[in-house]
Design a protein around this nucleic acid. Sequence first.
DNA 1: TAGGTATAGACGTCTAGACAAATTTTGAAG
DNA 2: CTTCAAAATTTGTCTAGACGTCTATACCTA
Lengths: 237, 237
Amino acid sequence: MDWEPGLSIWKQIEKQLLADISEGVFIPGEKMPTEMELVRRFGVNRHTVRRAMAALVDSNVVRVEQGRGAFVQEQILDYPLGLKTRFSQIVSGRHRLPDKRLISSEVLKANSTIAQFLDVKPGTRVIELFSVSEADGVPLAVATSYLPAARFDGIVEIFVETKSLTEAFKRFGIDDYTRKTTRISATLPSSRVANLLKQARNRPVISTESVDVDSAGAPIEYGVTAFSSDRVQLIVE
Amino acid sequence: MDWEPGLSIWKQIEKQLLADISEGVFIPGEKMPTEMELVRRFGVNRHTVRRAMAALVDSNVVRVEQGRGAFVQEQILDYPLGLKTRFSQIVSGRHRLPDKRLISSEVLKANSTIAQFLDVKPGTRVIELFSVSEADGVPLAVATSYLPAARFDGIVEIFVETKSLTEAFKRFGIDDYTRKTTRISATLPSSRVANLLKQARNRPVISTESVDVDSAGAPIEYGVTAFSSDRVQLIVE
DNA sequence: TAGGTATAGACGTCTAGACAAATTTTGAAG
DNA sequence: CTTCAAAATTTGTCTAGACGTCTATACCTA
């Protein structure tokens, strides 16, 4: 690489890396070359590369993690937590393609926690849905949902077909439902969740616990969702 | 200086300099020690001092000028440019003490520019006021104002006494006046203006040209004002 | 197989030195 | 005294090297 006079080398490197990112050479969320690789590519000292990277970090274009490397910062999705929060609507509204894939499902007997939130007796049969929500193919969240089996027999097939719980509920005569409660915490993901989110195990997830109720106030879903904190920001209105 | 473990040295230096500033050891607008002086004071390498200073520049606490040195950044005053812009009100509203000192005044014959803005014939006698506006003793702007002499005979004494053009106008029966036009440009100050603003000649000033009119629409003042761009930011609403 | 340990890889900090660029000061010439 | 050019100051950039801290991985042991 040859340098044009009048502009400091680190600024030219910053410019080049920025161009690479916008051209898709480096993908948001993916690892960038290591400092030493950039040193070899540009033929400068490591400190000069670091000066350029520092500028990119400063402008929030990349994120650096000690011991791991640098990553192209992804655009963080604002996820409003309202009474009528619908995943697909939020993502579509940001001009991104939503998808919700079912990973596994089974029918089991409710433990005391699930029973309490769904307002049923412990031991009642409930459907467990384990799914991944994506935008443009990038996983944003993994959700575990529990629904009373008696009321929603056969909902799994509809969910797989429509990829939407909202749509599946409609087939069961529930045209409208609202969020009753949401509890928010931050944790580190299990390896399974980290894997599904395609993120490092030491990056935190935002964990929400929520109950949705139908128009009559009866609980229809209890869910635990883990959002990738690098890709999603929850907004409380 | 001895360093506590667990926190990088440059951060400790940053912290110390920040403390010095808030304690008034370094005064806003004044020059800070040179890098070499800080190197001797803290007993570290110049690059370590520069790392700390870079953080302070980043957080807008200091401003560095190549070849001149580092200066404690002064809090920039937002100066709204509205129809009823009144200097003393704006400054008081920011909990700072306004002052407007008359530097010189004289009566002269209007040239074509002044005559045009004041809507009088060239050669008409006008009063020229040259003043400095300060907040907490720090000069923010120097203003040259032109008023029709026939209408405002004896206004100079009132202005000196009240330090306010708004107040002086009131004595002449003008309880209300509005800004008609404001033109904004950026220039380098003359040495006289730089001196009055107590700023370097190579730091730009924001220059405004304005006409105030009374409630009947008749021009009562044409003024040229030079704002210190380090201390004032104009806000157009 | 689970868990701890050693090791290599990658970023963070600090020191040292050499020039470059911008500004200010000094000093000589007129 | 003014003006202009040289010198000194001061900050900006780049290189070079050493060591610390954090992470991931491979390997060993129980």
